[in-house]
Simulated assay, not measured.
Amino acid sequence: MPHDSALPAWPLLLRAAGGRAALRRLVEVHGDAEAAVAAGPRAWRAAGLDEDAVARLRAPDPDRLARDRDWLAQPGHHLIGWDSPDYPALLRRIPSPPPALWVVGDPDWLWHPQVAIVGSRSPTATGADNAHAFARAFAQAGLTVASGLARGIDAAAHLGALAGGGATVAVMGTGPDQVYPGAHRELAARIAAHGCLVSEHPPGTGPRREHFPSRNRIVAGLALGVLVVEAATRSGALITARLAGEAGREVFAVPGSIHNPLARGCHALIRQGAALVEEAGEVVQALAPVAAELAEALRGRLSAAAAAPTFTAQTSAAVKLPADPDYQRLWDALGHDPAGLDELSGRTGLTVGVLSSMLLLMELEGLVTADHGRYARRP
């Protein structure tokens, strides 16, 4: 799928830094980034760009733009703008979505049903083990795990998803070429190979204190729900949980010992209405309705059947599939012996990201079984 339309225009707009809302408004009014750039200073001001941003658009920094072009020319590097059909549907719904996303890896994973796992940067051994175990179980159930690439719970979640044979998405508080903390460079490379790294900041942007709370809204916005594992009463994880609730997403919390100060944030969330969960299956079951909604949006993105994801087109006396012909193609490719995503991709011609979304929906409907990332028809 093409992910890189209007590449020269989007770096210009993002480097102008005219504010998220103003950039989105400018692009919406003119249809796409190229038309927005060509519209000129009067249109830029009318959209809400201040004079500094207008000046940067009129006389852009050639060194920074060259850096952006060089970065985008590398394999696996993408820029997805607000005007792109590949912009994640769920992220569009948050109060302040980023105008564009810099992505390392496969951007299709941004459309896959995700659950975010967040928590303390200094967890107990039990907390880190719980995050790893939940993430591994989510991956084996067909969900992608999102987190923020930080130390502690974030890292345990990313590693658990990878151990489960699944994909994971890391939202960065730096530019896409700057891994923070530096000790996570190897982890970041593994995530890019089995998921993707995402940032709203252009290449060369180093770690800044104000970027990390802002990053949390993207973690929450990409996910169907957020699971908090060990968090103090004042922590970034609770900010993520609050943002998730404000965006209409599900919030889950793992309870802990009353003697553990890192359990108090989770207990506070539970008192405020977050779902207390003890195993991954509870989260998967709770997210089933919104996962189906995301599958519907995905089919619209692929210009497939516009019908809601109800199983209506009967293929046999016992099995019903959506009217979308891709589901019939996938069903025909599935057998009674488990097959991995790469094998199914080869059989169907569909991308791994698209297949994952479809298989999750079919699993929730009881049509397929999933075991360690391999899928088969349910007997």
Rank of each mutant, 00 (worst) to 15 (best):
M172F: 14
E186F: 13
I117A: 01
R92L: 10
S147Y: 03
P98K: 13
L110G: 01
V145D: 03
D129S: 08
D108Y: 04
G166A: 14
N130R: 15
W102Y: 14
A116W: 01
Q114I: 10
T126Y: 15
P113N: 02
V103I: 14
P123H: 06
G105I: 12
L79S: 04
W109N: 00
G173C: 09
T168S: 12
P95T: 13
Y180W: 15
V179E: 06
A135V: 03
S96Y: 15
V145K: 00
V118E: 00
R121G: 14
H184I: 09
P113G: 02
W82G: 05
A133C: 10
S120H: 05
P176I: 12
T174H: 10
A167H: 15
Q178E: 13
A161K: 04
A156M: 04
L101S: 04
D177W: 09
A139V: 09
A170D: 05
A125V: 12
L162S: 03
H78S: 10
P85E: 11
A163H: 07
D154V: 08
R92H: 06
A116S: 07
D86K: 10
A133H: 08
H184V: 11
A183M: 10
P181D: 08
W82P: 02
S96G: 11
L159C: 02
W102H: 08
G119I: 01
A137D: 15
A139D: 03
A141L: 11
